[in-house]
Simulated scan of single mutants.
Amino acid sequence: MNVEGTAVERAAQKSLLTGFHAAFSVGTLLGAMVGSAAIKAGISVPVHMALAVAVILLSVIYLYRLVPAGTGKETGGDSIDPPMSARERMAIWKERRTVLIGIIVLGMAFAEGSANDWLPLVMVDGYKITPAMGSFAFGLFVAAMTIGRAAGGMLLDRFGRVVVLRASALFAITGLLIVILGQSYTVATVGIVFWGLGAAFGFPVGLSAAGDDPRGVAARVGAVSTAGYLAFLVGPPFLGIIGESVGLLRALIVVLIAVTVAGLLSQAAKPIGKQTTKSRGQENQFDSY
């Protein structure tokens, strides 16, 4: 779906991938709201999970028929050059730009995945609040991320990828510092909003940057998205291990470092290849900052 999204972006010559990922965030927000309601209603976790599985299965059975044939495939029409060989596809993992974009996505996805897996517990353990309030805090994070992604296309078309990524990293750093150092739940919720806004852009913008070159787009988007999903899969357990020693609240310092590195590497996402005069001029206008 990410490969298809980058293809749609190229065809439309607009920033659309953040909007597509906003739909993902809406689903996460609905899940957080349902989870909070289930806690208040006293519904057990097994019953809650069984209902979630039923919804997912029924949705897949109904919706898969609506996905167009060929979605996600790299076709000959994507580029005037011949398709990449297997060796060329493997060499993509050594490309400097692809590696740097992968690190950006890794850091920002770590910020998002850590909140997805740990934020409610971080708030409950760190600020001594109820589980329902912890779920609400996570819902606040996802709501902020959803709003950021919904507005992402407009911001990207106006300011360009590099500026947006740097700003998002700054927002995430500010939010994490407030959550880590905050002395009250109310103050921490302000940090959660900043954290959510900051985490909104890294993954979709990185995928968009990986899809700049039509030749090998599937391999590059696949490589970068692998880095993101690695952060989702490995990052949260790693954070949990650290949290056992120093506490989950202090363990967020690791996330802070990862986001800082991602922000410092934002220049790697600068568009390459065919760009509209408007978008190229916007990138050049703001790169000096």
Rank of each mutant, 00 (worst) to 15 (best):
G216M: 02
I61P: 00
R280W: 09
V99D: 03
Y62E: 02
L176I: 15
S44E: 13
G281A: 10
Y289R: 13
I80N: 02
V187H: 10
R250P: 05
A200H: 12
G216P: 02
E112R: 05
L155W: 06
T98P: 00
G27C: 08
L16Q: 11
R89L: 08
Q282V: 14
V246A: 08
K270T: 15
T260A: 14
E95S: 12
R97C: 09
R89Y: 07
R166W: 01
L177D: 01
A188K: 03
A150F: 14
L248S: 05
L156E: 00
I180E: 08
T130L: 14
M33R: 04
R97L: 06
L265M: 11
Q13M: 09
S168A: 13
V60I: 12
P271L: 09
I101D: 02
V142F: 03
G160P: 04
A137Q: 06
G35C: 01
K270D: 09
M108L: 12
D213Q: 08
K278H: 14
G77V: 04
R250W: 15
R220E: 03
V124W: 03
S36F: 00
R158G: 10
A50H: 07
V217T: 10
V122G: 01
S15H: 00
V26A: 15
G27S: 10
T28N: 09
V26Q: 11
V45F: 14
L176S: 01
N116E: 11
W118K: 09
F136R: 02
F159I: 10
A151V: 12
D78P: 04
K270P: 08
L119S: 05
A231G: 13
A12D: 12
G228C: 04
A137S: 15
T174G: 10
Y64I: 11
G148V: 08
R158L: 11
F286Q: 07
E88G: 03
V8F: 13
K14Q: 11
V26S: 14
V105S: 00
S85Y: 12
E112Y: 04
A258M: 13
I92H: 00
